Computed example of a mutant assay.
Amino acid sequence: MKRIGITGQNGFVGSHLYNTLGLKPEQFERINFERSFFEDSEKLDEFVKQCDVIVHLAAMNRHPDPEVIFNNNIDLVKSLVASLDRTGSKAHILFSSSSQEEKDNLYGKSKKEGRTLFAEWAERSGGKFSGLIIPNVFGPFGKPNYNSFIATFCYKLTHGESPVIDNDGQVKLIYVGELVQEIISKIEAAQTQDLYEVPHTSENKVSEVLSKLENYRNLYFENGEIPELATTFDLNLFNTFRCYFEIKDHYPVKFTQHVDPRGAFVEVIRLGIGGQCSFSTTVPGITRGNHFHTRKIERFAVIKGKALIQLRKIDTDEVLDFYLDGNEPAYVDMPIWYTHNIKNIGEEELYTIFWINEPFNAEDADTYFLEV
């Protein structure tokens, strides 16, 4: 069992790392960190004392004055190093640096100098240090106009705006889930490595990424069709895109129902990919689900009866309620990292069709149980 603290645990990468570590409670204990600890040496020292591993992610990326970015990032490193010295810690420090280290800007310089300060601490204290040079990161819940151009494009395409390409260059990218696995592998290795360049997992022109996202908007956001997802990058980009529209305003989506004297016909899903389709009957008062996925795409379609579908992003308290009725067939798609359930709130059996983008595999189910 390793006790792990994450500075910046509520940030983009930090929250993904924090939540992923939480999936393995038998291996990792998460030590809570708050931004205010940097202003209180006693609280910072108490945090440091508890940690076998500290992943230092807290940093400023953007500010009108580059000097503010530089001073802020260096001050954070110096505060943490001072606490490590005061407590005599020999923790393993992992530091997120950037591919901008070699560029002539103050953000890159703050990262390079911060990495040097941690390496010097490790050498004199006997602690361990891993300096990670990280490529451009994208993924769900990144802030538009801050974390990545992909976050900005996704937000604009789902909010009636038109993205603009400033520089159509080749960009080396890594999905935040892939970066988290890289960090965890370094935690498990527990070795000093002053400089490790995290390999990018895809390389794309900005215009190619925008073209894919525009296709997702046209097929999925506007028409409910699951697009062709030929590569891992496509799947990760699509799951990223799905997290940017206003879920509580978008769902439930009503199907087009064709009625004639024989009865009714409803098309449930149109696919560019395969997967597994199933249906269930649920007796009144019973709730199914209460779990979440980290990569799967899933659709719940109610075709008979009355249902309450609930969603909650796992690190928030807000519960989203969607009421569906088979008399007006509709569906709700499950975003990744949202725990979800479905309850029969009617007086007759509930009929539900479920589609998921990959067949169930008991050895890699990507299903984590958590009450909504």
Rank of each mutant, 00 (worst) to 15 (best):
Pro329Phe: 02
Lys343Cys: 11
Ile342Arg: 04
Trp337His: 02
Glu347Gln: 13
Ile342Leu: 12
Val332Tyr: 02
Asn344Lys: 10
Ala330Val: 01
Glu349Pro: 11
Leu320Pro: 04
Tyr338Ser: 04
Leu350Ala: 13
Thr339Val: 08
Ile345Asp: 06
Met334Pro: 10
Ala330Asp: 01
Pro329Met: 07
Asp325Ser: 02
Glu348Arg: 12
Asn357Ser: 15
Glu358Trp: 04
Val332Leu: 06
Met334Arg: 09
Leu324Glu: 09
His340Arg: 08
Thr352Trp: 00
Gly326Trp: 05
Trp337Glu: 02
Pro335Ile: 01
Asp321Lys: 14
Asn357Glu: 14
Ile353Thr: 03
Asp321Cys: 12
Ile353Pro: 00
Asn357Tyr: 07
Glu318Pro: 09
Trp337Ile: 02
Leu320Asn: 07
Glu349Val: 15
Trp355His: 07
Pro335Gly: 00
Thr339Arg: 07
Glu328Ile: 04
Glu328Lys: 05
Tyr331Met: 05
Asp321Gly: 03
Val332Glu: 06
Leu320Val: 00
Asn344Ser: 04
Pro329Gly: 02
Ile353Asn: 00
Leu324Gln: 08
Glu347Gly: 07
Glu318Met: 03
His340Ile: 06
Asn341Glu: 12
Thr339Pro: 01
Thr339Phe: 07
Asn327Gly: 03
Gly326Thr: 03
Ala330Asn: 03
Asn327Ala: 05
Gly346Ala: 11
Asp321His: 13
Leu350Gln: 13
Asn344Trp: 04
Val332Gln: 03
Thr339Tyr: 00
Phe322His: 12
Tyr338His: 14
Asp321Asn: 15
Ile356Ser: 08
Val319Ile: 14
Glu318Asp: 13
Glu328Ala: 08
Tyr338Gln: 04
Gly326Phe: 05
Phe322Trp: 09
Ile345Met: 10
Ile356Gln: 10
Ile342Thr: 07
Tyr351Asp: 11
Tyr351Glu: 13
Glu358Asp: 13
Pro329Glu: 02
Tyr323Phe: 15
Val319Cys: 10
Gly346Ser: 05
Gly346Lys: 08
Asp333Val: 10
Glu318Arg: 11
Thr339Glu: 08
Thr352Asn: 10
Leu320Phe: 09
Met334Thr: 11
Phe322Arg: 01
Glu348Trp: 11
Leu320Glu: 04
Ala330Ile: 02
Tyr323Arg: 13
Glu348Asn: 14
Asn341Phe: 03
Ile353Gly: 05
Tyr338Val: 02
Leu324Val: 09
Tyr331Glu: 02
Tyr331Asn: 04
Trp355Tyr: 13
Asn327Ser: 06
Glu318Gln: 14
Asp321Glu: 15
Glu349His: 14
Thr339Asp: 09
Trp355Gln: 08
Asn327Lys: 05
Val319Phe: 11
Ile336Phe: 01
Glu348Tyr: 09
Ile356Tyr: 02
Ala330Gly: 09
Thr352Met: 10
Leu320His: 07
Val319Glu: 13
His340Tyr: 05
Met334Cys: 05
Trp355Ala: 08
Asp325Gln: 03
Gly346Phe: 07
Asn344Pro: 10
Leu350Lys: 13
Glu348Val: 08
Ile356Val: 15
Trp337Cys: 01
Glu318Thr: 15
Ile345Asn: 10
Lys343Thr: 15
Phe354Met: 14
